[in-house]
Design a binder for these strands. Sequence first.
DNA 1: CCGCTTACCTAGATCGTCAAGGTAAATAAA
DNA 2: TTTATTTACCTTGACGATCTAGGTAAGCGG
Lengths: 104, 104
Amino acid sequence: MQGTLDMLILRVLQKDSLHGWGISQRIHLLSEDMLKVEEGSLYPALYRMERKGHIRAKWGISELNRKAKFYEVTAAGKKHYESERKNWIQLARATALVLGHTFS
Amino acid sequence: MQGTLDMLILRVLQKDSLHGWGISQRIHLLSEDMLKVEEGSLYPALYRMERKGHIRAKWGISELNRKAKFYEVTAAGKKHYESERKNWIQLARATALVLGHTFS
DNA sequence: CCGCTTACCTAGATCGTCAAGGTAAATAAA
DNA sequence: TTTATTTACCTTGACGATCTAGGTAAGCGG
């Protein structure tokens, strides 16, 4: 779904700081295998978000002993996430309304 | 929300055949004023959908006595709508899962 | 006859996504 | 020791949907 990737990334970074690869895995896992983040979407998104000041990067070593870039959410990112989340829920609700669908 | 417009249009055309202007109004109404379809999105979408064979157009006269293009869903459009609908609901569910949100 | 609303249309730009590539390093296998 | 696999990052080019910001025309009310 277009326009939700940034929000999903911010979400999975709320708990811990993760590297790109880990973010992708986490989203896949949390969505019960329904969402899959392509690398060609992921990395541009991470750059975008870093440029906007929503996340911050630090080089480190992964759990599997490989160099990896770890991302964490900034205060601005947290704030942005909350509003994006609210907005998405409202839009999803509105769309469901038109479709005549209830999420019960 | 990106990628949902075609689906919403197909949805409001299930009941009656409407003209572009009417489609826009109907979506706005059904979504309780939350969704607003810009004309710059609407007309390209209608063209796209006609080209794909999902809808069919006929010139006529509107309720207010102005010339208007009325659209109706084709059989292929109906089929496409059902699958788009299912797909959207699944994606919305998956996204909600990641967000940790329930639509109850 | 003037302005408002209804109704349709388009050009240009932007933005997010994806496909399809590539690099590098650690580990496992042969 | 060489090779393959997995992990991890990155980029380029194209595409597709959307929005902004215009424009046209015709009916209706004042």
